[in-house]
Simulated scan of single mutants.
Amino acid sequence: MQPLIAIIEDDRRVRTATASLLRAAGHASEGFASAEEFLAGDTRRFACVISDVQMPGRSGLELLGLLAAQGGPPVILMTAFPDPRLERQARAGGALDFLEKPCDPDRMLASLERALG
């Protein structure tokens, strides 16, 4: 069975574009509009999480902390508002990568391959 990737992004257009990129690269994904929506289901189904940092409700950093504490899947964070301090915090919390939106498709796919490898 193909690994399933969670895309957690409050902007529907970004969520859809990310899912399209993953599908074109041969990956299966499921989208969620918030961390709460994602956490309401079985998070163990996912091999990797790609999440926005700034979202209403629980942030991507908070989600990263929760998943890391549970021994959850690798997390790739993305943001439209990059900040070196925020990136250091994300990496210290265990983020596999920290991408600036709009994300470079090749870099996102390379990060995903590392996560799945």
Score class of each variant (00 low, 15 high):
A6L: 04
M78I: 06
L61V: 04
G31K: 14
F38L: 02
P3E: 06
T18F: 14
R58T: 01
S59V: 06
S111A: 07
R12C: 09
L67A: 08
G60P: 05
L21P: 13
A28Y: 06
G26M: 01
E9G: 11
E36I: 04
C48S: 11
R114D: 14
R85F: 12
L116P: 04
D42W: 01
E37H: 06
T18N: 15
A19C: 10
P84F: 04
M1G: 15
T79K: 11
P102M: 13
L116F: 05
H27S: 04
L22I: 01
G26K: 05
L99C: 10
M1L: 13
G93Y: 04
A110H: 15
G94N: 09
I5K: 11
E62G: 14
R23K: 12
L63T: 02
L63S: 06
R13T: 14
A69D: 06
D83Y: 09
A68S: 15
R12H: 12
H27N: 05
R23H: 14
A28Q: 14
T18H: 11
S51V: 01
L22N: 10
D106F: 07
V75W: 07
E30N: 13
D11N: 15
L66W: 06
R91S: 10
L39R: 01
L116E: 00
L66R: 08
S29A: 14
P102G: 07
L86G: 06
G60H: 10
A6D: 00
A35F: 00
D11S: 15
I7Y: 04
H27L: 08
R85A: 12
L109Y: 13
R114L: 12
L86C: 14
L21A: 05
L86H: 10
A115S: 11
D52K: 07
A47Y: 11
A95L: 05
D42T: 08
E62H: 12
I7L: 11
D10P: 12
G57T: 01
G93I: 05
S34K: 02
L21N: 02
C103L: 10
G117K: 07
G94Y: 08
D42M: 05
L61G: 09
V75Y: 06
G72V: 09
P84K: 08
L96F: 14
I76E: 02
G57Y: 07
C103N: 00
E62R: 14
L99E: 02
G94A: 10
G72R: 13
T43G: 08
L22M: 10
L66F: 06
F38E: 00
R58Y: 00
I8P: 03
G41L: 05
L39C: 02
V14C: 12
M55C: 09
P73R: 04
R45K: 09
L99N: 12
E87D: 03
V75H: 08
A17C: 11
E30I: 01
K101W: 01
D10S: 08
D11V: 13
A110P: 06
I5N: 09
M55F: 13
A92T: 14
F81E: 05
G26C: 09
L61Q: 11
S59K: 10
R114W: 08
P84L: 15
A115E: 03
